[in-house]
Amino acid sequence: MAEDNADDAAGTWLTIEDAASALGVKKAAIRSRIARKTLRVKPGKSQNDGRTRVWVLHSDVKDETGTGANADNDTDDGGDTIAGMMAALQSAHSAEIERLRSTHAEEIDRLQRSHEAELKRLAEANRGWLERLISSLRGQK
């Protein structure tokens, strides 16, 4: 069974997709391990992004030869290295950053357009008042 205290073993919490990549198995294999309770699970509802995470021991991550220290028999053909796992994580992280930038850039553009329109409206509303003030000041001379 999976280690009950994940903090005692060297590892990391990964999404099912990232865990499959790191362990060199298919996502179905990870789900099978979850069902067999051989991986510790952190349910998606406890995560900000809603994705289920599993605790993957560093010793289980595939090395250059395609085997890990505690590899199961449900492996896929190829084995990923820690560098491959890092590349997958960096790729997922970059995609999320781009998604957030895009979302926020659209919101910033919308707010800037709204702000500019409001400034124009206020300038137009105040123009009459300002012209009257200048005219009255000129008349006092």
Rank of each mutant, 00 (worst) to 15 (best):
R51V: 08
R101V: 13
Q112H: 07
D49M: 04
R40W: 08
G50H: 00
R40G: 02
A87L: 14
L111M: 04
E96D: 14
A83F: 13
S21V: 13
D63T: 13
A20V: 01
A29I: 04
L133F: 09
A28N: 09
D74F: 14
L119K: 08
I108G: 00
K141C: 10
D4A: 15
K45V: 12
L133G: 00
T103Y: 06
S21H: 13
A29P: 01
E3I: 15
K26C: 06
K42Q: 11
G11H: 00
S135V: 05
L111E: 07
G11V: 02
S21L: 12
S135R: 14
N70I: 08
D77W: 13
I97V: 15
S114V: 06
S114T: 11
D74T: 13
L89G: 06
I134V: 11
E107C: 04
E118N: 07
T65H: 08
M85A: 11
W13R: 03
G66W: 03
L57R: 07
M86E: 11
W129A: 12
D109F: 02
H115A: 15
P43F: 00
A83P: 05
A83M: 10
K120V: 10
V61I: 15
R110H: 07
H115Y: 15
L130E: 09
A69D: 11
I97L: 12
L14M: 05
S59D: 05
G84I: 01
D80V: 13
A19F: 03
R127W: 02
R110M: 09
K42Y: 07
K120L: 12
S135D: 11
A2F: 14
N5V: 12
E106A: 15
L119I: 14
T52C: 03
A29S: 14
D63G: 06
G44E: 02
M1Y: 07
A6E: 07
N70S: 04
D77F: 14
A2E: 08
G139H: 10
Q140G: 06
L111R: 05
T15G: 04
I134M: 10
R40M: 06
T15Q: 02
G11T: 01
A19Q: 02
A105R: 12
D72C: 09
A2L: 05
A9I: 15
D8C: 07
N73G: 10
N48I: 11
A117V: 03
T75E: 12
K120P: 00
Q112A: 06
M86L: 15
R99I: 06
M1I: 06
R51D: 05
G78I: 15
G50L: 02
L100S: 07
D18W: 02
A28S: 11
S59W: 01
W55C: 01
D4S: 13
S21I: 15
T12S: 10
R33Y: 12
P43Y: 01
G24A: 05
E3Q: 10
A19V: 04
H93V: 06
T65K: 09
A71M: 07
L57D: 01
G139P: 03
S94G: 10
G128T: 07
L39P: 00
S102G: 11
